[in-house]
C-alpha cells in the first residue's frame, strides 16, 4: 500500500482529528489571507496618495512636505502592523499544528508500535504523517480559496473600511480628516482635483484591483503555509517519535 493510500485511509479513520485540523487551518489561513489583502489595499492607497500629491505643483509639495512625511510614516506604521499580525498568525498556526500532531501521536501509539515493529525509521514515520497533514492542508486550501473569492467580491468594501479605521487610529491628530487648515482650504480652492482633502487622506482616491489583491494574497499564503506544515509536522513528529521510543525503552526498567 502506498504512502498516499495509507494517508487517505488514516484520515478517514481519524475523522475527528482530520476535521479539527482542517477547521483550524481554514480559520488561521483565512485570517492571514484577510491580513494580506489589507496589506495590499494599504500599499495601493499609500502609492495612490503619493501619485495624487505629485499632481500638485512643486511649490505646493514643498509646503506639504511635513504633511507628506507624516502620511508616509503612518502608512509605514500600518503596513508594519499588518506584517506583525501576519507573523503572529503564522506562529499561532505553527503552535496549533504542533499541539494537534502531538495529541494525535499520543492517541496513535499502536500505529507507532506497528511501524517500529516492521523496521520503519523515525524519518519514514514522520514522512507518512506529513503526507496525511499535507492532504489536509490541500483540503483546507481549497476551502480558503473559495472563501477568499467570496471575501474578494463581497468583503473588499468592508476590508477597506477596516483599513481606514486602523489608519485613522494611527494618523496624528493634526492630520485628522475632520480638520483642515487655511492652507489646505486655499489649496483646494486654487486647484481643480477630482478629490477633496478628506478623501485624499482617507485613501478614497484609489481604485483597488480586487482580483489582484486576492491572487497575490492566496499565492503568497500557499507557499508560506506549506512551509509551516512541513516544519511543524515533520519537526514535531520527529521529536515526538524519538521521545516516545525513549519512553518505551525505559518503561520496564
Amino acid at each position: 500500500m502506498l504512502f498516499i493510500n495509507r494517508a487517505i485511509a488514516s484520515l478517514k479513520y481519524h475523522r475527528r482529528n482530520s476535521i479539527i485540523t482542517v477547521v483550524g487551518m481554514v480559520f488561521f489561513m483565512i485570517i492571514v489571507l484577510a491580513l494580506q489583502m489589507l496589506r495590499q489595499i494599504e500599499t495601493t492607497i499609500s502609492t495612490g496618495f503619493m501619485n495624487n500629491i505629485q499632481g500638485f505643483p512643486k511649490t505646493i509639495q514643498s509646503e506639504l512636505q511635513l504633511t507628506i512625511r507624516a502620511m508616509q510614516v503612518t502608512h509605514g506604521t500600518v503596513l508594519n502592523q499588518y506584517a506583525a499580525y501576519i507573523a503572529y498568525t503564522y506562529l499561532a498556526i505553527f503552535i496549533f499544528l504542533v499541539v494537534i500532531n502531538s495529541i494525535s501521536l499520543h492517541h496513535r501509539q499502536s500505529e507507532l508500535k506497528a511501524y517500529s515493529a516492521t523496521g520503519k525509521s523515525v524519518s519514514w514515520i514522520s514522512l507518512q504523517l506529513f503526507v496525511e497533514y499535507c492532504l489536509l492542508f490541500f483540503i483546507a486550501y481549497v476551502i480558503v480559496f473559495v472563501l477568499g473569492i467570496v471575501l474578494t467580491f463581497v468583503g473588499t468594501g468592508w476590508l477597506r473600511q477596516v483599513n481606514q479605521h486602523i489608519f485613522l487610529q494611527q494618523l496624528p491628530d493634526v492630520l485628522s480628516t475632520t480638520q483642515t487648515t487655511a492652507f489646505i482650504k486655499s489649496l483646494f480652492h486654487q486647484q481643480l482635483t477630482f478629490f477633496n482633502w478628506q478623501e485624499l487622506l482617507a485613501g478614497n482616491t484609489v481604485t483597488v484591483n480586487r482580483i489582484e489583491i486576492f491572487t497575490s494574497g492566496i499565492r503568497q499564503s500557499f507557499f508560506s503555509f506549506l512551509s509551516i506544515v512541513i516544519l511543524a509536522i515533520i519537526g514535531s513528529s520527529w521529536v515526538g517519535i524519538h521521545w516516545w521510543r525513549f519512553r518505551q525503552s525505559r518503561q520496564y526498567r
Binding site: M1, R6, A9, Y13, S110, A117, T118
Partner: peptide
C-alpha cells in the same frame, strides 16, 4: 496485549507495511 496494529489497514497490509 500490545495493540501494535494500524487499525485502518487490513491484516495483509498490517503484517508487512510496504
Amino acid at each position: 496485549s500490545d495493540q501494535s496494529v494500524i487499525p485502518f489497514l487490513s491484516v495483509a497490509d498490517n503484517i508487512l507495511i510496504d
